[in-house]
Every structure is written in C-alpha cells, then in structure tokens.
Design a protein around this nucleic acid. Structure first.
Length: 369
DNA sequence: AACGATCCCAACCGCAGTTAG
DNA sequence: CCTAACTGCGGTTGGGATCGT
C-alpha cells in the first residue's frame, strides 16, 4: 500500500527556508508546541508541508542542537558506534548529546568516511582495504560468529533505547504541553527530569535474551560451531554486516603494528587522529560469556558516560599503551583479563541508557532556554 | 579576476514502522 | 483485523561556499 507524497499539494513551497519562515515556525512551536506536524503549517501560516516543518525543526531550529565542529571525542564515538551499528544514525545520535542524526550522517559522509579510506580502512566494513586473506581466517570466523551476535544484540538494545527515548520525548512533550511550560516543546528531552530507566521492560527482555544466547563459550580452542544461539529469530534485525565490521577491527588490530605502521597510517591524519587506533577492537579474547558477565558485574555509572568513554578512548590509548590490544587470541594469556575489563567497560558505557547521559551532561552545558 | 572542481550541508524523497479509526 | 494516516529514518541531491589553477 503506497503512500501519497505529503508535499504534492499545489502551492506548497520547497527548498531553502527563509528567516521569515523560520521565525514563523519557531514562534508557533514556542507557543503551541508542534502537535500534529501535518496540521502545523496551516496553523502557523506556512506554505510548507508538515514533513518539511518537522525536518526544519528537528535538524536546525531546535534550541538544544549543538552546532559547529565535531570534537575528537565525538569523532571517535561516531566511528566506534558506526562499527557497531552501521548506518543507524539515529541510534548513534542518541549517544552524542545534542547532535542530530542528519548532522552525524553528513559528517560521516563528508569527513570520517574519507579519512578512514585515506587510512586504508574500508568505512563500510571497517576492514583494512584489500585485505581478503584475513577475512578467511578460521579464528576470525569464530570471532565473527560471536561478534555477529554481540553486535546484533547491541544494535537491538540501542534501537530499543532510542525508541524509548523517542517515546519519552513524545510523552514529555504532550505532558508538558498541558502544564505551565510556556516553551514546553522546546525543552529538550535531555532536560526533562526523566527517571532512571535501568529496568525498562524492553531492555530487560533483551537482557534476558542476551543471557539466553550468551551461554558460556568453552575455552579457547573450542570449535566455532554454534555455541552461541542467535537472537536473530527473535530480534529480527536486518543487519548489514555489523558483526563483520566489528570483527574487522580484530583483523586490523592484528596488522596494526605491522603493515599500518609502514603504510598509510603514518600520515598526518593519523597524528591528528591519535585515538583512531583505540577504535580497533581486540575481540580475539572475547566470549559472549565475558560480555554477559561484563554487563552483570561491571557497572559503569552512566553519569559520566562521556568522560569515561573518552577516557578509555584517549587517555589509555593515546599514551601508546597498546597492552590493551595485545591479546593473541588465547583465552589464558596474561592480557586477557585486561581486554575483558576494557571491553566490558566500553560496551557497558556504550549501551548505558543515553537518557542518563543526556540528563546529566546537558544539565550543565545546554543553553538556557 | 575568471572559471571549473570540489566540498559541504540543508533539504528532499521514499520506504518502513507505528498508530488510530 | 484492515487500512490509511502519521511519523521517523536513511539515502540522496541541489546549490552555495570554498579552493585551486
């Protein structure tokens, strides 16, 4: 069943917005909230379709939007999440306070993708370009199997969180509308006093699910086989090779001290991008069990998500301490615990409710309304 | 200064998921 | 349950800005 385009009606304007139109839209939303986007244009006196108004608002006019250059930390976060989630810009955006998915998408397409390519990394798969040998590596396929499940779960969870954030936003918006906030719809969700959501039903289900499929994986040397039951059939994710992309970090890692050192990685952009290597994933020593335990036992407060994430990404690795990545794929090697701890921490932070992060981070730095 | 090439990003398009009647 | 409307998302594009010759 097709849908008719919303902007086909005659007389509706398209193209760049004028300051006058912006003003009308802003004024209307400040006073009434956006309500139904479809009904908004006529009420606001705009010759635009509702969709155009919504886009203008969400991508440009919203007062809580952070504009300007992306910081190194933001870049790192985007790359890390992109490796995990693929082109799920909205999900990525939920972890970058006050950045729109459109902005992140544009930044990826115009900057990050090119830089990764320059550095010899395929921005789609996050694999070293022209590195086909490693992809057929046996150990890699095991990691791929594990990571595929891990990232699928992560993706499902992040999407669920994003959905909950959206729902909260809608709920808050409609609730606030009936309250005394004159600018109710302008209050970013990040500023709303949202209760902690550690045990949201959806997430619990996912966690349970995670517990089910992430049964203990036998120690190193076990066949990759089917030790991990896929959540695919339940969490129906039409993935685009996410597991593969994450695994690729392992492969890149294996080569990072060799080929990359002599090659393209040494150009200026690498210096500028000191943290990129930190995005390489030492998944060799991962098991779904360690991940599960990580979720259960390693609690990283969401309050400092940004700080800690950044810390892990910059402080630990910019200093040249590569011990985190030196795992050789055997579960009983010395660095294994470190690897586990690091990655459980990172993932825990990554999957920590963005609403927590947003509430806390924005309380201090978002513009006063 | 003029022109073409490239970069960048706001905006559009159309599909998919959700919701309401 | 079915259908149409609404909303959100990701991919793509148009055109202004900037750069290089």
């Amino acid at each position: 069943m097709g849908r008719s385009p919303c902007c086909d009606k005659l007389g509706l304007k398209k193209g760049p917005w004028t300051p006058e139109e912006d003003q009308k839209l802003l004024a209307y939303i400040e006073e009434h909230g956006h309500g139904s986007w479809r009904a908004l244009p006529s009420k606001a006196g705009l010759q635009r379709c509702g969709k155009s108004c919504r886009l203008r608002w969400t991508n440009y006019l919203r007062p809580d939007i952070k504009r300007g250059k992306f910081s190194l930390q933001e870049e790192q976060t985007i790359i890390q999440l992109h490796a995990l989630l693929g082109n799920r810009w909205s999900a990525i955006a939920t972890h970058l306070a006050n950045r729109t998915d459109n902005e992140i998408k544009n930044y990826w397409n115009t900057h990050l993708k090119k830089r990764l390519t320059k550095m010899g990394i395929d921005p789609v798969t996050h694999k070293p370009i022209n590195d086909s040998i490693l992809s057929s590596n046996k150990g890699t396929s095991k990691n791929t199997a594990n990571l595929s499940h891990i990232t699928q779960w992560e993706s499902a969870r992040l999407e669920a969180e994003a959905r909950l954030v959206r729902q909260s936003r809608l709920r808050s918006s409609s609730e606030l509308k009936s309250q005394e906030f004159p600018l109710s719809p302008l209050i970013p969700v990040s500023k709303l006093a949202m209760p902690p959501m550690p045990s949201l039903p959806t997430l619990d289900k996912l966690k349970t699910l995670n517990g089910i499929w992430s049964k203990p994986v036998s120690a190193a040397g076990s066949s990759c086989g089917s030790e991990v039951e896929s959540p695919k059939s339940i969490v129906n994710y039409s993935g685009t090779g996410m597991g593969e992309s994450s695994t690729s970090f392992v492969e890149l890692m294996r080569n990072s001290s060799g080929s990359c050192e002599d090659g393209i990685m040494k150009d200026g952009t690498e210096e500028e991008w000191g943290g990129l290597r930190s995005l390489i994933n030492p998944m060799d020593t991962w098991s779904s069990e360690s991940l599960r335990l990580g979720y259960d036992n390693v609690h990283v407060s969401s309050e400092n998500f940004g700080d800690k994430f950044t810390d892990l990404l910059t402080n630990n690795y910019n200093s040249g301490d590569w011990s985190y990545f030196e795992g050789n794929g055997e579960s009983d090697n010395g660095g294994d615990e470190t690897n586990k701890n690091y990655w459980t921490s990172v993932l825990d932070m990554v999957v920590t409710s963005p609403s927590h992060n947003m509430v806390n981070s924005c309380a201090s730095d978002s513009p006063v309304l």
